[in-house]
Amino acid sequence: MTGDFPKEWQYRTPKTKLLIWAFWLCMVAGFVYCWQVMNEGTIWFFVQDAPKQAADIGGRMWPPKLSYVPELMRPLWDTLNMATLGTMLGVILAVPVAFLAARNTTPSAAILRPIALFIIVASRSINSLIWALLLVAILGPGILAGIIAIGFRSVGFVGKLLYEAIEETDVTQIEAIRATGASPSQVLNYAIVPQVLPAFWGITVFRWDINIRESAILGLVGAGGLGLKLQASLNVLAWPQVTTILLLILLTVVLSEWVSAKVRTALI
């Protein structure tokens, strides 16, 4: 046939090719640079030694000390309470914040909405362990600091997802209730709340599940629960106890994840 058609075909134009190369070059250069900066202080002897260390610790960790379990029941109870009460506190604080942050329910888009959004971002950026660190320094050790830490961290999470749910509500349902002559608080109660209620419970249970994981380690900084026992065992290098605690945490986490998944599917 005729040779009018080109025999070569290129997937990308030369310019995009160049850009993609430049992108990869930057990534590799950035990686190498970061790697060097990061490892300035690394003592490579320790790294070479790590497999031996790992084998050593692993050997000491097994078998777990099951006789330690009864002593862990009280801290487990504390951990569960910390997670649950903390979730409740977080949700109570998050609901008004979410309504202030949602574009369609905020009373003042110019002042209150940015404040609410800042509260959400601040709470989300700071991990509960950091909150716990601060609160233990302020309130002293104990589960109260843990509850408040969990609560403060949950505000941002619940607030963000809830305000997104509020913004996604169906406007015609709201319009219909407004058209009956309802006051703004009645519109909230009849048109918006029923629409976001399933999302609300889903988010709450989801956060509760995450909080169980987080509250298990808050004790590392003194906020009570299983983490406190973990810290104590690590300090005296009682590895079999460490294994026992980790297994218990794992079991609790798996159970809470199962419960949360069940509840969420039941809600939808």
């Binding site: 990061m38 202080g41 690394t42 003592i43 790590a50 260390q53 610790i57």
Partner: peptide, 8 residues
């Protein structure tokens, strides 16, 4: 515990 303190 295995690799020592620090960013690594």
């Amino acid at each position: 515990a295995m690799f020592g303190f620090g960013p690594f």
